[in-house]
Structure formats: structure tokens, C-alpha cells
Amino acid sequence: MDLDAYLDAHRAEWNRLDDLVRTRNLTGAESDELLDLYQRAATHLSVIRSTSPDAQTVEYLSTLVARARFRATGSRPLSWAVVATYLTRTLPAGLYRLRWWWVPILIGSVVAMTVVVVWSLNHPNTMTWLNNRYGQKYVDSSFADYYSSHQAQYFAFNVWTNNFRLALLAIAFGVFFFPVVWVLYENVLSVAQIAALMIGNGKADVFFGLILPHGMLELTCLFVASGMGLKLFWTWVAPGHRSRGRALAEEGRTVISVGIGLVGLLLICGVIEAFVTPSPLPTFARVGIGLAAWLGFLAYVFVLGRKAFLDGATGDLEDQSDRGTEAPVAA
């Protein structure tokens, strides 16, 4: 096919379609014309892709067709089927696909916390500094009182909003790398210092009894968010055969999808921290609830997520047409 001749023959139709897409209020006749031109442009795109896949032309038509499709059909209404697909395929598959980014962060952070705690306990000057910084009142009562000093529902809301703010900060600024490292550093060091302080003062049972019920899942969510942020950074650094814009768009859709799921998971953490952590239940029961929530998350990722991933889900939009049409690339 003579691509230049084909472009000259249909360019006027594409320009007209572009004008209609940009028009705010369409008449009935213009709406019919838009739909007709959209269908023609989709056919033209298919012909060009199969015969003379010029990258620039395909990219232009893909964008035009996607915009026209949205204008012609409108947004897809939310249904329980969409929600079910998201919860059973999109979210767990996205978490599973990104596991090599957040699992090493989880393991590395736990190791780092352990090293800081052991080092602090074996250095009297560090323990003296921690005791002076926090004070004996914090060890004796303030640490435990923090979890029951406010009404549970308000405390849960405040914890939830603070945690997903940190998570979204790690994701949103992940492309710049250093904000993610800073969020991780601040949280790992803070938990490790308080652990060393409490353990060094003979309050290990209080510390673990109050941290573990919500902390296992809560910190895991932070590590997931940090892993997604670093994934965005690496996508920007090494996009592969894709343009940086296209690579960030593709990974960004998955990150947004998983990020929405993290908001829900952190809500669960907030509820546990407000209602379970300070409850009069025995320590083993409170820790057991937290452990069950954490193991449930891991099963969600590595059982349901793995199954969905092997079935073709990636965490990106399920409908290929919603992603737009990709330009051809060299092998």
C-alpha cells in the first residue's frame, strides 16, 4: 500500500473527527457524524497497522481513536462486576507482578531494623541518648497510652489518613527516588529506635504486644508503596524499547490500581490499630488477629494474585481497548 497516498485520501476525515472531538456541545447530526468518522478511523488504523505500520501515524491515529471512542461512548458505569474483577484479578495480579520490588524492601527493612536494635542495645551511649530523648514516662505509660488516648473511630480515621498519606507520598514522588528512600529511612529508624528503647527497659512484651497486631500489615503496605515508587523511578531510568512517556503511563496505571487497593488495606490497619491493639484481649489473641490479617494479605497476593497473573492479568486495565492502541516497535 502507498502510505502517503492513503494518508492524503483520509487526512480530511481525521481532521474533521479531531474537530468534533474538541467541540463541547454537539448537535444530533454532529454526534452521528462523530460516530461514523470514529468507526472509519478505527478501520483506517487497522489497515495501516497490518500493511504499513508507520509508528508516527499509528500513534497519532491511536490517540485520535481513543479520544473519539471516549467521546462517543462516554465513561463506563461502575458495576459490581467491575469491582469484583478489580478485587479478584487486577489488584492481586498487580501486587504479585510487582513482588520483586516490594518483597526485597520488606526483607531488607526488617533486617535493617534488627541491626539497629541489636547495635543500640549493645552501645550504652546510644541507649542513654534514647532514654534522654523519649523519657521514662514514655517507656512506662505514654507508649501504651497512645493507642487508647482517643475515641477509637477518630483514632482509626487519623491513623488511616496519615498512613495512606505516607504511602501515596512514596508512590507519587517515587520517580524522583530520594523521597522514597527518605520515607523508608524515617519509618525504619523510628520503629527500630522505639523497639530498642522498650526492649532495653524491659518492656519488650509491651512493645511487641502493641506493635504487631497492626504493624505487620501496616508496614508491609508501606513497603509495597515504596516498591511501587522505585518501580516508577526505574521505569523512567530504563524504559526499554518504549518511550519514557509510554512506559510511565503503562506502569502508572498499575501503580494507581495498586495504590487504590493500599488505601483499603490501610483502612483495615487503622481499624485494627484503633479497636484491636488497645483492646483488653490477651496479647496472643491481639497478635493472632494481626498475624491472620498479614497472612491473609500474603495469600491474597501469592495465591490469588499468582493465579490471576498466570491467567493474563497484570494489574493494568483489563480491557485492552481502554489502554489505547500501542505503536509498533522494533524487535
Rank of each mutant, 00 (worst) to 15 (best):
Y134L: 06
L106Q: 10
D205L: 08
L98F: 01
G240P: 12
R69Y: 12
Q320C: 05
R246E: 14
Y38L: 12
V224L: 02
D19I: 00
A29W: 04
A292V: 12
G259K: 00
G296L: 08
D140R: 12
V303I: 15
P124S: 12
L230D: 07
A330G: 06
G290D: 13
W160D: 00
L184M: 14
Q153N: 10
A274Q: 07
L17N: 07
N163M: 11
L310G: 06
Y96C: 02
T63W: 14
G324A: 09
M228V: 00
V83C: 12
R71I: 11
G259A: 03
R76A: 10
W234F: 11
G315C: 08
T43P: 00
L266E: 11
V301M: 03
V117A: 14
D322Y: 03
S52M: 07
W102H: 10
D316T: 15
S226K: 01
W294N: 09
M228L: 15
G315L: 05
A167F: 03
V329F: 10
A308E: 09
T43H: 02
E273M: 06
V110P: 00
Y38D: 01
L87R: 05
M113D: 13
R323Q: 12
T88W: 02
G261P: 01
A68F: 01
G240D: 12
R99H: 14
A299P: 13
L217P: 03
R97M: 08
G312Y: 06
L265N: 09
V191F: 06
E59R: 11
D32P: 02
P92I: 05
R49Y: 09
S62Y: 08
A167P: 04
V224S: 00
T90W: 00
M198R: 01
R69N: 15
V255E: 09
V65L: 02
I272P: 13
L197A: 11
T220P: 13
S279Q: 07
H241K: 15
Q193A: 03
Y147T: 01
W129R: 15
E251L: 12
T220F: 04
A249G: 08
L169P: 04
T161G: 02
P77M: 07
V103M: 14
Q151A: 07
P239H: 05
E218N: 11
G315S: 10
A249M: 04
R133D: 07
L267T: 00
L295R: 03
E30V: 04
S31P: 03
Q136Y: 05
F275A: 01
T90G: 01
V181P: 11
L317S: 10
T43Y: 08
H241I: 12
A299M: 08
D54Y: 06
R89M: 05
T114D: 03
V58Y: 09
P77R: 14
S148T: 14
E251G: 06
G174E: 09
I105S: 04
Y300M: 05
A192D: 03
E186H: 15
V287I: 15
F143L: 05
E273F: 06
A247W: 06
